[in-house]
């Protein structure tokens, strides 16, 4: 596994929660949105994560008719999902600041 995909593995869940918070999406839509935000993952890899998030009751899936016609499973955030996203944002900021500092320090020396 490349360093990039290892880095991504941990934060992909948070990214998916963030997208679902903005609007309820179905699987394919989610993969397109991730791609549009520049988060490149193999499309299939979102499904094991979606299943896990459902098991942890952070998101819930509901089968609805899509604009294009066929029924799709739309995912939306639950209350505990919203809390988990909040926590992710806090952790991410903390980590971002420390990692930035660490990396920039290296530059100064």
């Amino acid at each position: 596994m490349s360093i990039r995909s290892q880095l991504l593995k941990g934060i992909l869940e948070g990214c998916i929660l963030a997208i679902i918070e903005r609007k309820s999406v179905y699987g394919y839509e989610l993969s397109v949105l991730l791609h549009n935000y520049g988060i490149e993952v193999s499309e299939g890899s979102i499904y094991p994560i979606l299943l896990r998030l459902q098991k942890e009751k952070l998101i819930k899936g509901e089968v609805k008719k899509s604009q294009s016609g066929p029924n799709r499973k739309y995912y939306s955030l639950t209350d505990s999902g919203a809390r988990a996203l909040n926590e992710f944002q806090i952790h991410w900021l903390e980590m971002k600041v420390s990692v930035d500092q660490l990396l920039n320090k290296g530059d100064e020396n």
Binding site: Y26, G44, Y47
Partner: peptide
């Protein structure tokens, strides 16, 4: 089955 149909749609 739900997941299989989701993967197929994708």
């Amino acid at each position: 089955e739900e997941t299989l149909s989701e993967l197929l749609d994708h």
